Each structure stands twice: as C-alpha cells, then as structure tokens.
Amino acid sequence: MKEDVMNLDRAVMAMAGTVVLVSVLLVALVSTWWLLLTAFVGLNLLQASFTGFCPAAIVFRTLGVSEGCAFR
C-alpha cells in the first residue's frame, strides 16, 4: 500500500512550522513585533485542534492536496 508523500495534515503542519521559523528569523533581524505572527499561528493551530476548521486546510484542499486524518 503506497502512501502519499504529502497529505493535508502534513501540508498544514509544514506551512505552520515554516511561518513560525520565518517569524522567529524576523524577530531576530527586524522587530519583536513579529512575535505577533508566531502567536497568531499558535492560536490558529489551537482553535483548529478543537473546531476542525482550518483556513490553510481549505486552501490546500482546493489546490488538490489529498486528505489526511485530522482535517476532514
């Protein structure tokens, strides 16, 4: 049985991780106000874990990324 390399769950987590790392880099190089972006990503992940609603998952699904088990 072959698994897809990138499914919806992995795409959302990869995007969130990338945004957090970019935010940390921007905090170090530009301004501490970029911590608000990190907080926004964290809050969005937290609410998505309770509600199942994730805007990034909707975008990735529209782009044709296959379903995972978290965002259905």
Score class of each variant (00 low, 15 high):
F53S: 11
W34F: 13
L35T: 01
L46E: 03
M1N: 10
F50M: 15
A56N: 08
W34R: 03
M13F: 13
G17D: 10
M13V: 13
L63I: 07
L25I: 12
F60D: 00
D4E: 15
G68D: 01
G42C: 04
C54M: 14
S49V: 08
V27L: 04
T18I: 06
L29D: 09
F53K: 14
C69Y: 11
M1T: 09
M1F: 12
G17P: 08
L37P: 02
M1L: 07
V27P: 07
K2T: 14
T38H: 00
A70Q: 07
V30K: 10
A39F: 00
A11C: 12
V20R: 10
L37T: 01
L43M: 05
Q47P: 04
L25M: 14
A57R: 02
D4L: 08
S31L: 00
W34L: 06
S66D: 02
R10M: 10
R72F: 02
V30H: 05
A39R: 00
G42V: 01
V65Q: 00
S31Q: 06
L63T: 07
C69P: 05
F40Q: 05
L36M: 02
S66V: 03
D9H: 05
G52H: 11
A70E: 07
G52C: 09
V20M: 13
I58H: 05
V30A: 14
E3F: 13
L29A: 14
V59A: 14
G17I: 09
D4Y: 07
L36V: 00
I58K: 06
N44L: 12
V41A: 06
L26M: 15
C54Q: 09
L26K: 11
N44K: 08
R72K: 11
A39I: 01
V59I: 15
V41W: 04
G42H: 01
S31R: 01
V12W: 02
W33H: 00
L35Y: 00
P55W: 06
T62L: 07
T51W: 04
A14D: 15
S31E: 03
C54K: 04
F60Q: 01
G42I: 03
S49T: 09
V27S: 03
T18R: 10
Q47N: 12
C54T: 14
L25W: 08
M13C: 13
A48H: 06
L26R: 12
V27H: 04
A48V: 08
T62S: 06
V41T: 08
S49G: 14
L25Y: 12
V19D: 06
A14L: 14
L43K: 00
N7M: 07
K2M: 11
V12P: 04
R61S: 07
C69R: 08
I58D: 04
L46D: 03
V24A: 15
L46T: 03
T32Y: 08
S66H: 03
F60A: 00
L35D: 00
V41D: 05
V19A: 11
A56F: 13
A48C: 09
A70D: 04
I58M: 09
R10G: 13
V27N: 04
D9T: 05
G52P: 13
F50W: 14
G52F: 05
V59W: 10
A57S: 15
L63V: 05
V5A: 09
F50T: 13
D4K: 10
S23V: 12
P55I: 09
A14G: 12
S66T: 02
C69M: 07
A28I: 12
V5N: 13
F50R: 15
Q47W: 08
T51L: 05
G64D: 02
V22E: 13
